[in-house]
Write a protein that binds this DNA or RNA. Structure first.
Lengths: 150, 150
DNA sequence: TATATTATATTGTAAATGCAACAAAAATTG
DNA sequence: CAATTTTTGTTGCATTTACAATATAATATA
């Protein structure tokens, strides 16, 4: 069943590619949309959590987010309760951009799921959710330098 | 159902991340394993098809493949019937590496699909296959400069 | 409570990524 | 069959990506 992970890879790369091209219109460069979307949906989230959520290297996230800040899409605010955290919030410009990101995502969603019944979609989501939780442990383990045996 | 594409993205990034780390052991750098696997499974394939198959930019594929050749994992051979094509074949070293790649992929597969029944797996594959074919058109369209309306 | 460990964020550096532009062979078209 | 368009491959350049190393605050441990 190796094909399952391959299909997932192909789909992910295709959509990422499409989004990156389409979001240039907003001056968002490669990858940035991922972070902006999540910050808009979860204002106050910190960078570390965001990286973990998206499954991307911490330092990659750091740079993409810094750039979002420089461009004025988001703001970093000190967390007074925990001084090593910086909470992330969308700016007005960021919220504006988010509307477009959402429209694009909805459209891609429609294209992707064309011909699937509601039952199919629910089943697919449930199965993917399971796969994702199955893999999270290994991802964190390997990122931290752990060695899997096979 | 936006969550479906998000789950797919998370899973893909997590596995890609894991594979990239684990294949350093073979001196394969980021992304290279994708191409090597396909070349081993489909000897004689050309670069352009490979990029399309994997859903990656043509020039990115070109460079990853060139590097595989320099490192001795694959060979490029002129196609006598069509002089602008270069057919790709694994070397002995490449085939050797492929055994390891396969072992790793099988293991990741096991982890990913733990807790799914055979029926689940079949359903998942079928649904993902459908999604992938649904999106291929848009990917090619947008890569070639087409503008989607939404 | 002092010390060690963990969590979060940042920066230096090397490498991959992807767009633009180009070249050449092949296929299509008028 | 000549001209145009498409296919395949390459290179220059700007940017992202990710590993390593560093810093500092917070938490755990002895």
């Amino acid at each position: 069943m190796k094909e399952i992970l391959r299909e997932i890879g192909m789909i992910a790369r295709a959509f990422d590619s499409i989004s990156n091209i389409e979001f240039k219109e907003l001056d968002l460069t490669k990858g940035q949309y991922l972070y902006l979307v999540r910050i808009c949906e979860e204002p106050g989230i910190i960078q570390e959590k965001l990286a973990e959520m998206i499954k991307v290297d911490r330092t990659t996230a750091a740079r993409a987010i810094s750039k979002l800040e420089i461009q004025g899409f988001i703001e970093k605010k000190k967390d007074e309760d925990n001084k090593k955290n910086k909470k992330l919030y969308p700016s007005e410009k960021g919220r504006e951009a988010y509307l477009f990101l959402k429209r694009e995502a909805d459209y891609s969603d429609q294209v992707a799921l064309a011909g699937l019944s509601n039952k199919d979609k629910e089943a697919l989501l449930k199965l993917l959710h399971k796969v994702r939780t199955n893999i999270e442990g290994d991802w964190e383990f390997v990122k931290k330098g752990g060695k899997r045996n096979y």
